[in-house]
């Protein structure tokens, strides 16, 4: 496992995380299988993959928000509260998660901020409630802390008394981010934060999230938007059929030499700025995964070796990873905001 950007102890360390759903009729769904990844302070890890590949389930598992028919395995150690200590998010009970983890140590940036905010209350009242809940501030201190919380997410103070429907999409996203930042959580979890936003709004949103990572927070962003992932991520984890099939540096993934796993390569080739060529076939059912490599039925490189599940060796979980540096073509490296 590659270490983060130099930090000796990762902020979040997920090991062999598996989630199974028991459905009616005894059917079992393997939503997440053997996922291991680290997020360090100041680092952004983008978890990309098709809808239904299990990436949202992973986020729910980390927040302890899975439905009752889910079974989890593995561990997810969140460092803290004290130095050298760590909390296993998967083993912690609900009271611990509610009182000390969610909002305080893991901030959630939601998918649709407009739906995340109560329509009949102003942004100020949302923020004040969260500040009071998390810090216990009252009176003048509460008012000051509320304005400070808004400023931290670059939410303009003169818009604090507006209702959610009076905000533009970008401001609603900032309001939701401000809520996620109130508890000063070292780890931010952003679940599809850009779905349904315009391209320039996507860019602004991810740039702002990137700013929080640069300020020392760990950021795990879950998205199917590869352009957004390229813009924000230090490292990329590609998920396919519940497994992480590639985990590598973003620079090499989107630029040269490119991804090593054939699925990741296919995903990039499907972008309109590249070959615009779909991967043949469709992802397998999580309730009915093929034996061996789940991508083999769609893979041009598959052979007999692919009847066993490949382990993540190096950066890719593949028996026949792409090694030759293929011509990178017109990369989609846009004028990134990263330094």
């Amino acid at each position: 496992m590659s270490q983060g950007t130099g930090a000796p102890e990762p902020l979040l360390s997920v090991r062999d995380l598996s989630v199974r759903f028991r459905m009616r009729g005894g059917r079992e769904i393997a939503a997440v299988t053997d996922v291991s990844l680290d997020v360090a302070h100041g680092e952004c890890l983008a978890l990309v993959g098709e809808s239904g590949c299990g990436k949202s389930v992973l986020a729910s598992a980390l927040l302890g928000l899975l439905p009752g028919n889910a079974r989890v395995g593995g561990s997810a150690l969140l460092s803290g509260p004290g130095p050298g200590e760590a909390t296993d998010l998967l083993a912690a009970d609900e009271a611990t998660l509610a009182r000390t983890v969610r909002g305080r140590r893991v901030g959630l940036v939601p998918q649709s901020p407009a739906a995340h905010l109560t329509p009949v209350r102003t942004v100020r009242s949302h923020l004040a409630e969260t500040v009071r809940e998390l810090t216990g501030a009252k009176g003048q201190a509460l008012a000051t802390a509320t304005v400070a919380a808004a400023r931290r997410a670059a939410f303009p103070a003169d818009h604090l008394d507006r209702y959610p429907h009076q905000l533009s999409g970008g401001l609603a996203q900032r309001a939701a981010t401000a809520l996620a930042l109130v508890g000063d959580a070292p780890l931010l979890l952003a679940d599809e934060p850009t779905t349904g936003l315009d391209r320039d709004l996507v860019e602004r949103t991810v740039d702002e999230l990137r700013g929080h990572a640069d300020a020392g927070r760990g950021l795990l962003i879950i998205t199917h938007d590869l352009a957004a992932a390229e813009r924000i991520a230090d490292r990329v984890a590609v998920m396919y059929a519940g497994r992480v099939v590639e985990l590598t540096e973003a620079r090499g993934f989107f630029g040269a030499p490119g991804p090593r796993h054939p699925y990741a390569r296919g995903l990039l080739d499907a972008l309109p700025e590249r070959a615009f060529r779909p991967i043949p076939g469709m992802p397998p059912e999580l309730g009915d995964l093929p034996a061996g490599c789940a991508f083999a039925p769609r893979c041009a490189r598959a052979d007999a070796a692919c009847s066993t599940v490949p382990a993540l060796s190096g950066t890719a979980a593949c028996h026949h990873p792409v090694t030759a540096p293929e011509p990178a073509g017109c990369g989609i490296r846009s004028e990134g905001s990263r330094t």
Partner: peptide, 8 residues
């Protein structure tokens, strides 16, 4: 995996 799975 299932051996290690816990109920939540």
């Amino acid at each position: 995996i299932p051996a290690a799975l816990r109920r939540r």
